[in-house]
Amino acid sequence: MPTPRTLLALPLSLALLGLSTAVSQAHPAPDTKALVRLLVTRGRTPAAAALLAHDSTGVDTTPTGTDHPRTAPDDATATTDYALGTTQYAQAGTGISRADHFRAGSITKTFIATVVLQLAAEHRLSLSDTVEQHLPGLVHGAGNDGRALTLRSLLTHTSGLYDFTAVTGGTVPVTPTQAVRIAVTHPPADRGRFSYSNTNYVLLGLVIRQVTGNSYATEAERRILAPLRLTGTSFPGSRTTLPSPHGRAYAADGSDVTDLDPRVAGAAGELVTTLADLDRFYSALLGGQLLPPRWLREMLDTRTAHGSYGMGLFPVKLPCGTTVWGHNGRISGSYVRTAATVDGRHVLTFRVNTSGIADPGLEPALLAAEFCPRTS
């Protein structure tokens, strides 16, 4: 598996919702606007990219050389007011806008982990509970045993469970039970080692239903979306269309995949959202609005995964020494990345309307450009 200093860029057929844990050792990047342009200038797809950041620390994050226009046409950068603080918006390409709804892939995992940790804080489950206690008989076969797996191992990707999307390619709609059955026909990886698997979070979605009597979507809407007023965020279930407004989404071969059955991902990646909602969510989460301090510390504890992953979040240490927390999401026709300082006061989200970045090395460069101190 990749280390925190290696950008994971797996093909979609191997990882529906791949994990990026990159740190660039390159020289300081150019300004944010220039990097957003570069995100979409390579490759065969008719791609576009958008970015929204906010910083309530008082640090100026405006890209060098911009003149603060009040609107943001294509290939423009703007600053504006936002409920959480000062933001910047950068855009490249056509057919994409700041207000668009888009598929967020594995960023769904942060929402699922937050609900599970809220239930733990309410003493409705324990992270040391076994999968068998909540889902008896479901995880067995080919060396898999739910009696040996804890909820903590699912949250931290240390269960060893096979990733069902390695079989489905992230293109075949499946029920949660079908996804698990696909996984348990394969022998597990070594338990206790970090091995990213979408199966883990499909199981956590089932655990949420078992504990609460409600779907993970219902619980996330009640516990996260409504309190934070994330009006652009939804769990679409089997709905194949995106809410308005939205642009188009393209697969790696250039085909239009805007309409997609979210059951290809389920609790591991079905979320639909907006740039502003993701900024607000991660700022609130890391700012302590969704979890008690003890449970937020649990979420950020990477010791179980040997530094690679917490619970629904992973850290990236930038060349300047700053560590940012967040997640990425990859699903057919969409790649999304959110990163934030540990206090949630400075957060950035960007997305492209394809399954991946044309040049994966641009992601760590963009994070460094945003979060590392600028020199004149």
Rank of each mutant, 00 (worst) to 15 (best):
P243G: 09
A22D: 15
G333A: 07
I208L: 09
F111N: 08
R223M: 10
F164A: 13
L151E: 04
Y335A: 05
L138F: 08
E219D: 06
W325A: 01
A83N: 06
N328M: 07
P187A: 06
T94A: 01
G85V: 09
D279G: 14
V40D: 03
D145Y: 00
A358L: 08
T79I: 06
L19W: 04
L204W: 06
T156F: 12
R44E: 01
R147P: 03
T375Q: 10
N214F: 10
D277Y: 09
L367G: 07
P4H: 03
T218M: 14
R222G: 03
A72N: 15
A29I: 15
A113F: 15
P136F: 00
L51G: 01
S56Q: 02
T273S: 00
Q91T: 13
T375N: 08
A104L: 08
G65Y: 01
T199G: 09
S355W: 04
D359E: 05
A217Q: 14
Y309E: 01
S106N: 01
G269C: 14
A369M: 07
T354L: 10
A53K: 08
P292M: 02
L138K: 06
D100R: 14
D253G: 13
T108W: 06
D163F: 05
P173M: 15
L286F: 01
L204Y: 14
A284Q: 02
L138V: 09
T175I: 03
L14N: 03
A9P: 03
A99P: 11
I112L: 02
N144D: 09
I96L: 07
S159I: 05
H346E: 14
E219W: 01
Y201N: 15
V172A: 10
S13K: 13
R103V: 01
F314N: 13
S376Y: 12
T175H: 04
L10Y: 08
G356H: 04
L149F: 01
V336E: 03
S56P: 09
A47Y: 02
S13M: 07
H134C: 03
F194I: 06
P69D: 11
S56G: 15
L203A: 11
T341S: 11
A15V: 12
A249I: 02
L203P: 08
Y196S: 01
F102C: 11
D145Q: 04
T323F: 00
T130E: 00
P315D: 00
P63G: 07
P373V: 00
R152L: 10
R37W: 05
Y216N: 15
R330W: 01
P69Y: 02
H186Q: 10
E221P: 05
E219M: 14
T94F: 03
A99H: 12
V207Y: 11
T64P: 15
Q289V: 04
V324I: 10
L154E: 08
T354C: 02
L271N: 11
R239D: 13
T45P: 11
F314T: 00
G287M: 05
D81G: 06
S255I: 03
D261C: 13
H101F: 08
L52M: 12
T341N: 00
S195Q: 09
C372Q: 02
R330Q: 04
S128R: 06
P4D: 10
T21P: 08
F164W: 15
Y282A: 05
I357D: 12
N214L: 07
P136K: 14
S238K: 02
H140F: 10
Y196I: 12
L290D: 03
D81K: 07
L242I: 11
E221S: 10
